[in-house]
Design a protein around this nucleic acid. Structure first.
Lengths: 334, 334
DNA sequence: TGAGAGTGTCGAAGCGCTTCGACGACCGGC
DNA sequence: GCCGGTCGTCGAAGCGCTTCGACACTCTCA
């Protein structure tokens, strides 16, 4: 609408007020009479005014942009990431912020760049590793940040995540209640464990600990993502553990391969083998048969991360660690 | 590094030159002696200077940020999107630009906002529909834009995409060469066709046209994404077409279900039914058996979109349409 | 009724950068 | 030895916004 860029000065002239008055109408930082406010707002929409982001950032020292740092590496669950990303964008908009996307291949450099240049006010980082190179940098930074996931040494940081240990335990509990006495966990590809990614490790720990609590037997194995490898893993697992009747799968890409392998090996789900997955709801629902699953609450995690980082921007203190309770949805596979 | 924000004035003082000289060293818009340049660069790294993005944007009328508008709707191939996004970020960085992430649920509003506020210099839009509400807006906008995908009326726009018609045809050609005489296309869920999404429709058209060219029989069907629905579709298909010996699958989420369904129906791949997929390479490789596929060159499309939008930013004219040639990789499934 | 306490608005001073015009220094050509 | 042309550098004028202090009013209460 309208010709070229409209400035606040033009709005002020059109409304017959001072530039600062327009600014205060927009920010609400000083009281303005209802009458003046109306006139200003009318002029704004008449002229199609949009405040210049650069000028605003320069004068106010706030860009109203937050950085979202994504990984994009081998072994990541890409669709889950996407949901995080999308929920972060949606949540940020509710605080009148936009989201700048950074990929980790730019590494530490990129984070420093956008923070030091005041391109962003704050950062949200995803896929944090136990020993993450970015963590020391974050501690130095003036800009507030929130991590999705936990590094090995989270002191002085703000972290949010699903409680994966509880998720692993919850799966064991569910299978134990159903009377299974020997179960297995098929986890992430071994490269993910080697990298020390927290969520994979913590799920396994929760799983193992819960075995003892319920007095049942179980093993935890990494799980690659090609059909042939999954098939072999499942076949060997069933061979080595004839009494095994329950399976926990924490690997989104492998879920459908596991089910196909079981079918091919003549095991019916849930009759011969019960299966619980830890994955997004839609993957679980789409599987054949639909899987009992602990859902990964991507939307909630993203929203919470944004909420926390906004609180920090306002100068408020927030809890260091936020763990979201896993929810188990029972479907046809157990 | 260093205490608080370092400004160009401090760098200038430290190096013993004028502020404008520092600016010209950074931008290269005027010749600077080698000696002075060295001194300035030394000061910059000694002080840890990073130009303030807001000030730069205000003075130069360039934010060095481009918007990436993603869809995130039902029926989308999420992992493919992610690769586009990641390649766009990487490519943009090579032009010294960052990427602002917008989701389509903000709709036309968001595009107008970031463009009018000069938050971004240019836009890249993904998942364009045949009749896209955003298209008219783009035509009005002063900021250059590039679409990934084609709307029904692409005049006056710049569009990039894989040549899906050629991809569909290429699959037919491959199966015809292998001697198959009756084949089928399993496409996107019907909701995607109903929405008028270009790539699904164009693949089908290319497929159908190529059938005639090679004188073979074939049908094209939509394909839902739950295992049970896929199973039924495949079963009915084989029932209705006893002579059918080749399958083209253009639906990433359904690929593994199709293979599982065939196994369950006692059809061996490729012995009884040959399968070609149109999907990202890693999905094809990970399947059992690894699939002959037309790969979706996400990286290339993203890179090309960024290149085009940068050309437009420089004021150069670019071709309206860029279609990338599909490449078929032969694997174990045909 | 006049001091004090709000209200509502204005003007001006920056925020940190880019860019334009100006200007000295130095060059070669005649 | 003087003139025009480069080359390298400087100073200053903005870019469009926020924010601070000031100021004119209007209330309120002693």
């Amino acid at each position: 609408m309208s010709g070229r860029t409209v400035t606040i000065a033009q709005v002020a002239k059109h409304a017959g007020v001072a530039v600062s008055t327009v600014s205060y109408v927009l920010s609400g930082k000083r009281t303005i009479s209802a009458d003046t406010r109306r006139r200003v707002l009318d002029s704004i929409s008449a002229l199609g005014y949009h405040p210049n982001a650069g000028a605003r950032a320069l004068a106010s020292k706030r860009s109203n942009v937050i950085a979202l740092v994504l990984p994009l590496r081998a072994g990541m669950h890409v669709p889950v990431l996407m949901r995080f990303a999308s929920s972060v964008v949606t949540a940020a908009r509710r605080y009148d912020h936009d989201v700048l996307l950074l990929t980790a291949d730019e590494g530490t450099e990129g984070i420093l760049r956008v923070a030091a240049s005041a391109l962003v006010d704050a950062l949200v980082l995803m896929d944090v590793e136990l020993d993450d190179r970015r963590v020391p940098l974050l501690r130095e930074l003036a800009e507030p940040s929130v991590l999705i996931g936990f590094p090995a040494e989270p002191a002085g940081l703000t972290c949010v995540d699903l409680d994966f240990a509880a998720a692993g335990a919850r799966c064991v509990e569910h299978l134990a209640e159903r009377g299974h006495e020997e179960i297995a966990l098929l986890g992430a590809p071994s490269v993910v464990y080697d990298r020390g990614t927290g969520f994979a490790t913590r799920t396994r720990e929760g799983f193992v600990a819960a075995l003892g609590d319920h007095g049942i037997k179980g093993v935890a194995l990494p799980c690659e993502e090609t059909f042939d490898e999954v098939y072999e893993t499942v076949r060997d697992l069933l061979l080595d553990h004839p009494g095994l009747s329950g399976l926990v799968v924490h690997n989104e890409a492998a879920v459908s391969h596991v089910l196909a392998a079981l079918r091919q090996l003549g095991r019916r789900v849930p009759h011969d083998v019960a299966v619980v997955a830890i994955c997004p709801d839609d993957v679980a629902e789409r599987a054949g048969p639909p899987l009992t699953s602990v859902l990964i609450p991507a939307e909630e995690v993203g929203r919470e991360a944004v909420r926390l980082v906004m609180e920090k921007l306002e100068g408020r203190t927030v809890p260091d660690a936020t763990l979201l309770t896993p929810l188990l949805a029972v479907r046809a596979s157990t």
